[in-house]
Design a protein around this nucleic acid. Sequence first.
DNA 1: TCACAATCCCCCACTTTTCCCCACTATGGC
DNA 2: GCCATAGTGGGGAAAAGTGGGGGATTGTGA
Lengths: 147, 147
Amino acid sequence: MSLPNFVGVYFYSMDSKNRLAVPAKMRLAMGETRGMILSCGLEGCLSLYLGEAWRKLNARLEEAPLNNRMEQRAFKRMLYASACEVDFDDEGRILLPQHLADYAQMKREAAIIGVGEKIEIWAKERWSAYQKREARAFTRHASRLEI
Amino acid sequence: MSLPNFVGVYFYSMDSKNRLAVPAKMRLAMGETRGMILSCGLEGCLSLYLGEAWRKLNARLEEAPLNNRMEQRAFKRMLYASACEVDFDDEGRILLPQHLADYAQMKREAAIIGVGEKIEIWAKERWSAYQKREARAFTRHASRLEI
DNA sequence: TCACAATCCCCCACTTTTCCCCACTATGGC
DNA sequence: GCCATAGTGGGGAAAAGTGGGGGATTGTGA
């Protein structure tokens, strides 16, 4: 079985209870799979993984070439501690734990982005700024890759 | 049967009787399995193992590449002497023996962290300091590994 | 062997959080 | 224009975390 390939960007809002809807298209792409992991991502976003994608990621990390045991422990601790199991409520929303909402500087407005096997969640302003900043680089890369 | 994979960080408080709640999500992940081992962990935390995870750890120790036999015996003695069997009370709490609470410098506030097959218990300030100290290295590794 | 003390754990009560459920609105397709 | 679906919002029941009282058990010392 192959993992879904998420695409697209959606602008939804987080409510006062830290609930955030996941786009119906993405939910459908997941099929019956439940049990997702939400964790800190890079550049200040949050990453949402399906269980299987999370396991794949961990398998890769296990054989990562870190300098020593202590560093490896630290990395694993940080990654696991930042993560959290989430699930949909009956309306297809997930609940963002406060410490993750803080990490991503979430206000009301959020951008939800499909990035292949994972879904990223950004505070909208952060995403806008990032997008603006990266637009030029994108054009350069795209041109080189003949998209 | 496979062992549960614990994730997430929870900030709970230890009461005046050294009782500490284990997050409901983690308890559920354990299923019916009871009989856990609490022992000294590295970097000043406590490690909580399910019976099976403890046995696996011991198997690994037997074939550990320590410098010499004496060192191996010493480590094993320290680990075993510090360890102690714990169980849940009716509210899902475990009782921390005084010597382990001392070892981890536990005050009232605790951080409970899922780290794969084991659960770690930290004094909250210690965890915060550790996290702060390791944040930079974490980001570097995460970026390199494309999380 | 008994008395006493310390510890453990069961039980109850209270507070906070979570999540189920319902309702409303907006949007898009027919 | 209507209907179905999706996103948004909030009330309230249920669950989870916190705290303490008190009886049972264990261990110690006389």
